[in-house]
Write a protein that binds this DNA or RNA. Structure first.
Lengths: 174, 174
DNA sequence: GTAGATTGCTTGCTAGCGCAACCATAGCAC
DNA sequence: GTGCTATGGTTGCGCTAGCAAGCAATCTAC
């Protein structure tokens, strides 16, 4: 933490003005509010592009991508929800729309009659490959190309700490 | 960028497997997917806490906080939308709900009959102060306490680059 | 002045999201 | 076997979000 802020410092990284309104130190404001704002702008742009080019939301691509990376290209809906940090109800509905487009199929799980496999179809796999090709290039252009190697390493270390398994077995771009 | 990944490297930071499925390098996956996942988990937890304790969403607090920081504690809705990166329609509706709770008032702008000032009330200011006090402590606990000074500085530099004005004139925690 | 374009805001619509309620199956205690 | 609980999934609902259409006021060109 830098010590060259002009304002009085608490033990904490924020302070209050004369009205009691709380204010971050400059570095903390840039880091936290900048994180929120950067996420908002990048995901908005990337989602719009993905929708326009492939008719997929970021969540839809993430589910398809996780299926593509899975053994035999199928997963239980609960496992998908856990991997993607989405509610089961949301996954159920996203899979329904993907199923209408023929990108996945619901199949009964032979080992558990309650469970459903979401099975990626050949057409779904083709779409994943197409969509990720353009999507990854966009993430590279809008995000990684603005960073140097040290910065990428720091972000990887920091966000890997917060979300340890997020990238595991995942080709998801979003 | 580290050079010790085990996989073949392209000029780019991602590659394709035998099926053509795209995969990030490990550092890039941790950085990008970790960013998405970290944002999702932190904002979900913080928003839930803010809703439970103060009946405010992160967006609602951000609008109130920007009003609290503004001269005379009022702003045009368009300015609020721009500052918070929200659509004008969304701001209009959020202000409507805040108005029902007596936290802000819509006032005709004397200089432009089309425009509306969102004016923070005294009760709104008190709520901002209360809500930010707990909210900032939570952000400190769940986010900054997991980072060292160098990491915070790097995040501030990086996200300040993507979202240069995001934190300006803003006491927003969300 | 007046016509047309622009700006500020509101509202109808649709999509994404999670929670809670619900149903069916599975597993466990007995 | 019979219950009781837990798990997997679906659906109703309410919330947030943005887009597009619409309205009123302003500005510009003439």
């Amino acid at each position: 933490m830098t010590d060259d802020t002009t304002s009085t410092r608490h033990a904490c990284s924020y302070e209050t003005d004369a009205n009691g309104v709380v204010r971050w130190s400059e570095a903390h404001a840039d880091a936290w509010i900048g994180l929120l704002e950067t996420h908002k702008q990048l995901t908005r742009a990337l989602d719009a592009e993905l929708t326009a080019q492939h008719g997929l939301s970021l969540s839809g691509l993430e589910l398809l991508a996780r299926l593509a990376a899975a053994d035999d290209r199928h997963m239980h809906l609960t496992a998908l929800a856990g991997a993607a940090s989405l509610s089961l109800s949301r996954v159920s509905r996203i899979i329904a729309t993907l199923e209408e487009r023929g990108l996945v199929e619901r199949r009964n799980c032979p080992a558990d009659a309650r469970a459903v496999h979401a099975q990626l179809t050949d057409g779904g796999l083709r779409l994943v490959v197409d969509a990720q090709t353009t999507h990854f290039a966009s993430v590279q252009a809008v995000f990684f190309d603005q960073l140097d190697g040290d910065e990428i390493a720091t972000l990887a270390r920091v966000f890997g700490r917060f979300a340890p398994q997020a990238a595991d077995q995942c080709d998801a771009g979003g």
